[in-house]
């Protein structure tokens, strides 16, 4: 364990634990758009920036992203130093210029007192904030179906060659974790469409509700050694079935006891 100071308070942390995790444990509000506990820290949005210094640095400060910077003994952290607040404000301002119609960004900017951007609004700026969560989660799922493509201002999230991704299983992890709900998908009449790829949906044999895609179920069967029958009923029906079986076990227990 190491001791460090956050906003004047001495706190304990695991050696090497990232600052953001310590800060969140201390219930200090530091924004972060590209952070997700399920995947490796990325350091792209730069909103979680904090000021750090040490006694021996003699007043010199550095500005680091707390989602990546490891805690160490004697570190002095200021999560809301004037320069940090200034930088965060500039970043949300830049975000607002790029994504003028994105509700999440508009709300965040308002928190920092930015109601209209001071910069040049990007014409046809969409709602993808390029946090890279979708691509990282897709990689984590083991599919690598989508990636960021291109460089600089023209960078975007896309399947290979902008065509329906061959490796996508329609698991929806990307869309459901997109902080701005930018990734579109639709489910209708037994089919799910995402990234221009159409998937057949499984139907619950119990209630007839549509569940996950057949391709994703097959993938799970193969990779996680789950029997295919498991996916033939929906979660709700599973619970009902389980409850019923548990009842049987209880009654069997009672019989055994008597």
């Amino acid at each position: 364990m190491v001791n460090l100071t956050i906003n004047g308070k001495v706190v304990q942390a695991e050696e090497g634990e990232v600052l953001l995790s310590v800060i969140r444990r201390e219930k200090i509000d530091v924004p972060a758009l590209c952070h997700h506990e399920a995947v490796e820290a990325f350091g792209a949005c730069r909103l979680c920036v904090v000021e750090i210094t040490r006694q021996e640095w003699d007043g010199w400060c550095d500005y680091v992203t707390s989602c990546l910077y490891p805690a160490s003994d004697g570190l002095i952290v200021n999560t809301h130093a004037a320069k940090v607040n200034d930088l965060r404000k500039t970043i949300v301002d830049l975000f607002l210029a790029r994504h003028p119609k994105c509700p999440e960004i508009i709300e965040l900017a308002a928190e920092y007192g930015v109601y209209s951007t001071t910069y040049q609004t990007v014409v046809d700026g969409d709602n993808c904030i390029l946090c890279g969560l979708c691509t990282r989660i897709c990689d984590r799922m083991g599919f690598h179906a989508i990636s960021t493509v291109g460089r600089g201002h023209g960078k975007e999230v896309s399947p290979p060659l902008h065509k329906a991704p061959p490796d996508c299983t329609g698991c929806l992890a990307c869309a459901q974790n997109c902080p701005t709900s930018f990734i579109e998908y639709s489910a209708a009449k037994g089919f799910l469409t995402i990234w221009d790829k159409k998937f057949e949906l499984l139907k619950c044999s119990g209630c007839g509700k549509e569940t996950i895609t057949k391709v994703f179920a097959e993938h799970l069967c193969q990779e996680r050694k789950i029997p295919f029958e498991y996916f033939q009923i929906c979660d709700e029906c599973h619970r009902k079935q389980l409850a019923a079986t548990m009842g049987e076990i209880t009654s069997w227990d009672r019989e055994a006891a008597s």
């Binding site: 990325f42 350091g43 792209a44 949005c45 730069r46 500039t90 970043i91 830049l94 975000f95 210029a97 790029r98 910069y119 040049q120 990007v122 390029l130 890279g132 960021t148 291109g150 460089r151 600089g152 201002h153 023209g154 960078k155």
Partner: peptide, 22 residues
């Protein structure tokens, strides 16, 4: 630099774009 920035972090991707625009 706007074209050659990798586009990962916001200050570089958006900041340089705005500096160029200015």
């Amino acid at each position: 630099l706007v074209n050659e920035s990798c586009g990962k972090c916001v200050p570089c991707r958006e900041g340089l774009y705005q500096l160029h625009a200015l």
